[in-house]
């Protein structure tokens, strides 16, 4: 039985369909990365999974139990790290941990003990009694994470937990999460950082415009995007209609087109030399052609028609 099973989740805000039929599972000891640009529907999906938003349709089960039937058990089984630093900034790190532990239902004594453990584990013991407002961004992120772990959840939902912090602080947090998973915790991790998804997650789901476009391991996703290279052509494509060019539509599939660039995937013969030759002979002024090896970024590009950083 999966630790988390979300089935066919949908959510609409007025005219906007924020999430459209998303299904995913997270197992114990696994990190599932939900990768997508801002506005793709990651936070809305997470909000439905943690019970903050009621889905228009679909169902969430944690360890086989639904919110509807066992709200208390389900909530106790998971910890949620929101994207914002949702802490009392005037209180110390220790006070925050103890407060959120008690809100999660543990006793005052257990909260005190657990807070001390987590402060050690998060490397914050020496600043434990300073107000959170005096912490660096990375330290605040660590306390934000720690508050979700006070009641020892088995499933951890992280909503872009490394936004706005420096690389070293990010690496510390990612290492900490790896340690949690090694102890058997299941993690659902939303991010728009490709490298985080590539280096951290066991499985990745690519989401855009509210739809889960693909999911699998990193290797599976790379294969999903195709084994062939992509070709990025720089030049003057203002007003160009490549589909009308003689033989172009038979040889290439357009992945992305702007006024200054055209990204294509070869159809049929993937030989790079022949592809390059054909692209350099396009009836527009071509300035440069780059070969892009299969990667998560290219898979994302193929699936969504845009790069993640856009």
């Amino acid at each position: 039985m999966s630790l988390l099973r979300a089935r066919d989740l949908s959510k609409r805000f007025g005219e906007l369909k924020a999430v459209d039929g998303v299904s995913l599972t997270v197992e114990s000891g696994e990190i599932y990365g939900l990768l997508g640009p801002n506005g793709a529907g990651k936070t809305t999906t997470l909000s439905m999974i943690c019970g903050l938003l009621a889905p228009d349709s679909g169902e969430v089960r944690i360890d086989g139990k639904s919110f509807h039937e066992h709200p208390g058990e389900v909530r106790r089984a998971m910890g949620v790290v929101p994207q914002e630093i949702a802490l009392y900034k005037e209180m110390s790190g220790r006070e925050n941990l103890e407060f959120w532990g008690r809100i999660a239902g543990i006793s005052r004594r257990d909260a005190r003990t657990r807070a001390a453990e987590l402060l050690d584990a998060l490397g914050l013991a020496d600043r434990a009694d300073d107000p959170v407002k005096n912490y660096s961004g990375g330290m605040q992120r660590r306390i934000n994470l720690g508050c979700a772990l006070m009641h020892r959840p088995r499933l951890l939902l992280l909503d872009e937990p490394t936004v706005g912090i420096d690389p070293q602080a990010r690496a510390n947090i990612l290492d900490f999460i790896r340690g949690l998973v090694a102890d058997g915790m299941g993690v659902l991790y939303t991010t728009h950082y490709l490298e985080e998804a590539e280096t951290l997650c066991h499985r990745i789901g690519i989401i855009d415009h509210g739809r889960l476009l693909a999911e699998g391991t990193l290797e599976e996703l790379k294969r999903h995007g195709g084994e062939t290279d992509l070709f990025a052509v720089e030049g003057d494509f203002n007003g160009a209609d490549p589909a009308a060019w003689d033989g172009f539509a038979e040889a290439f599939r357009i992945i992305q087109q702007t006024e200054r660039s055209l990204t294509v995937a070869p159809l049929g013969d993937p030989d790079p030399a022949r592809c390059l030759k054909a692209l350099l002979n396009l009836p527009v002024r071509v300035e440069n052609v780059t070969v892009k090896r299969p990667s998560l970024n290219e898979t994302f590009l193929r699936l969504t028609g845009r790069e993640l950083r856009e």
Partner: peptide, 9 residues
């Protein structure tokens, strides 16, 4: 903070 509280029981 309020959203975080609402996540808990």
């Amino acid at each position: 903070v309020l959203r975080r509280m609402a996540i808990h029981a």
